[in-house]
Design a protein around this nucleic acid. Structure first.
Length: 621
RNA sequence: GCCCCCGUAGCUCAACUGGAUAGAGCAGCGCACUUCUAAUGCGCAGGUUGCAGGUUCGAGUCCUGCCGGGGGUACCA
């Protein structure tokens, strides 16, 4: 958990001043009492206040040494255990050599209830169960409503974080294999940006390598290199590959062409640049359609590191890390072995003098640490590359190339078909990304029109685009990324369960209420938030978890945690919707206003949460 | 062979980084619509968390060994 500067100094002041315990909550609320409003300190969410109270109680009981101990506070996992639970007593009991329940009692005895806590009790081995006052909940909701960031403080000490994702290949069409890196990486970039980090997106495109020899040779021989547009790049790739495999003479010329390319031959380079530039235009169009943040300026392809590769090898040599094995320049990294149980080398220079992806990745690490000043670098790639990154990170670490920076591989599993085997077309071909998007949109339109026949024309198209793309992304994001997942149109477009349509529909329902009541959504605000009904209470408690969910996603780099949260939020909203009428004539005006506030808060949180996943919303569907 | 990842209800997935009685959706059965959009909600049923040990107040989660699936394992990325 991180706090803004203001918040942190406030916490420190409280903790240092309070021994023995003082009525901090009363103080906090008193500061606002004259305004007649419930919300407490600016930026101080109720969770933070609870932690303060527990910290203070802990210090009062056992002294200053425990001022920074984690109270282990979290939402209660069952309403009968209250609203929040603190699990510190069990851990502390061990440290202090006392029974956990005794520790819990000592803490509870010194908890200043104030207006925040209604009831506190000890249960089981030493759980501290906290029941919040209705007023505290109302205050929390009100504070969120008045804050653009929904109560999530911007970081006091932002880091420079490099997020490496998507990485398609020049002269090849993007396919299902690029889906996960692109979607997961984008969500991670968005979440870290929202937290306040300086996020530098890096698209490590495959724009260099031996395959360009055959492509360029074919282009030049057929005269296509002269043309304004190169046309269908997939066709080009297939044609040249076919020739490469079938014509030995062509294959030989293609190999020579690689040498010419590396040597900087003008005509060769011109053709290569044409390929790259056309591909980049194509990537940009896909990203735009997908609503992905990546731009041409984020591209640092393999070729970008070309002139840095000899330096990488030289540096390794200087550091005494480089060895020669079977004619290749290698680095032996501790802890890796090959089939025969011998140490596994990481090859940085081939026996013919060429460089490999390990060299490029090492060069990229240096660039990101030295030039981009990154303090955290995350790589969103296929889980199959785990060993490669483990070796590269270890080698760079051994060489002392990244002082305080942390490097993280963010692996993900494979997209499977319904049969449990890697997702392919019926013919066994790779599935093109554009085909996936097309089908997602058209299926979404069908599903939406079926439920709402009044949906027509441009609006139907728009809804189809948002819901279709959203469903495709959400399916990819909503399960634990390290596992493979089964691709299913029916499941991802289902209106029930943990799906994009279900979440977007919750958003739509809120707007439906505002439309029905002829209330301006954007302009609406209220001081009359009240939390009385169980469904209201459950909803507010869920809303309050948004901030910690963002932190959790940022720490773990697991976007599915946000999906789980949003699904629980939407479920809580639907229960509220069932049991708490808003616009009905017998609802008192104040209650109506308070419930409208909760509705708006739900919509804002859904929109923000989905937005952090790169998914949009619609007001009608 | 060695290393890494995965194994949870019939199916698809969760489980807040070790917390209380393992939760959802689908499929099955039964309820609630002159509606704030039933695109929903409620209930029933469904489990030896692959197996066996271990660590501790407490294990789906951590450790060890098996079983099963996937991936990696020297000049592709």
């Amino acid at each position: 958990m991180r706090y803004c500067k203001q918040e942190r100094s406030r916490r420190e002041a409280i903790v240092s001043q309070i021994c023995p315990a003082r009525p901090i909550c009363a103080e906090i609320f008193a500061a606002d009492a004259h305004t007649g409003r419930y919300y407490a300190w600016p930026m101080a969410d109720v969770t933070t206040q609870l932690k303060d109270v527990l910290s203070a109680a802990l210090v009062a009981a056992y002294g200053d040494a425990y001022a920074n101990a984690d109270p282990m506070l979290g939402p209660a996992n069952n309403p009968k255990f209250g609203d929040y639970q603190a699990n510190l007593a069990m851990k502390l009991g061990k440290q202090l050599g006392k029974p956990p329940r005794e520790v819990a009692q000592a803490v509870v005895d010194r908890v200043e209830m104030g207006e925040l806590i209604e009831e506190v009790e000890i249960a089981g081995p030493g759980f501290i169960n906290l029941h919040l006052s209705a007023r505290a909940l109302a205050s929390a909701a009100h504070a969120m409503l008045g804050d653009d960031r929904l109560g999530v403080p911007a970081l006091d000490e932002p880091q420079t974080v490099v997020v490496d994702y998507s990485s398609p290949n020049v002269a090849k069409e993007m396919h299902v294999g690029h889906l996960r890196s692109t979607v997961i990486g984008d969500a991670i970039a968005r979440v870290l940006t929202f937290q306040g980090h300086n996020v530098i997106r890096q698209n490590h495109v495959g724009d260099w390598g031996t395959q360009f020899g055959m492509l360029i040779e074919h282009l030049l021989e057929t005269g296509q290199a002269e043309q304004e547009s190169l046309g269908d790049l997939t066709k080009l790739y297939k044609e040249s590959k076919k020739r490469f495999d079938a014509e030995p003479d062509f294959a030989e010329r293609a190999k020579q062409r690689v040498v010419a390319l590396q040597g900087g031959d003008e005509a060769t380079l011109a053709a290569w640049k044409k390929l790259v530039s056309q591909s980049e235009t194509y990537f940009a169009s896909i990203y735009q359609r997908m609503g992905v943040l990546l731009e041409p300026g984020d591209i640092r392809g393999e070729s970008f590191y070309n002139d840095k590769l000899p330096g990488v090898v030289d540096r390794l040599k200087q550091d005494g890390k480089l060895e020669t094995s079977q004619g290749a320049g290698v680095v032996f990294v501790e802890g890796f072995s090959d089939k025969d149980g011998d140490p596994l080398p990481m090859i940085v220079q081939k026996s013919d003098g060429g460089y490999l992806y390990a060299t490029t990745d090492l060069a990229a690490i240096r660039y990101r640490v030295d030039e981009l000043k990154a303090s955290r670098i995350v790589y969103v790639t296929d889980a199959r590359q785990s060993q490669h990154f483990a070796m590269a990170f270890r080698a760079a670490e051994d060489a002392g190339w990244f002082g305080h920076a942390s490097l993280e591989h963010v692996p993900f599993g494979t997209v499977m078909g319904e049969d449990g085997k890697p997702f392919k077309t019926r013919d066994g071909d790779v599935v093109r990304l554009v085909d996936l998007i097309d089908e997602a949109e058209s299926r979404a339109i069908t599903v939406c029109k079926e439920k709402n026949p009044e949906l027509t024309g441009e609006e139907a198209d728009h809804v189809g685009r948002v819901v279709g793309l959203g469903s495709l992304k959400y399916a990819d994001l909503s399960s634990d990324r390290v596992k493979d997942y089964k691709f299913s149109w029916d499941r991802m477009l289902a209106l029930d369960g943990n799906t994009a349509p279900y979440l977007i529909n919750a958003y739509v329902r809120v707007h439906g209420i505002f439309r029905k009541g002829e209330i301006d959504f954007a302009g609406f605000t209220s001081d009359h938030v009240q939390v009385q009904e169980p469904a209201e209470k459950a909803l507010v408690l869920k809303l309050m978890q948004f901030g910690s969910t963002v932190d959790s996603v940022a720490d773990s780099l697991e976007p599915h945690r946000m999906c789980n949260y949003l699904y629980e939020l939407a479920s809580a909203f639907h229960k509220f919707f069932e049991s708490c009428p808003v616009l009905k004539s017998d609802v008192p005006l104040e209650i109506r206003e308070g419930r409208l506030a909760l509705c708006k808060l739900v919509a804002l949180t859904l929109e923000r949460g989905l937005g952090l996943l790169g998914i949009g919303v619609v007001e009608r569907m």
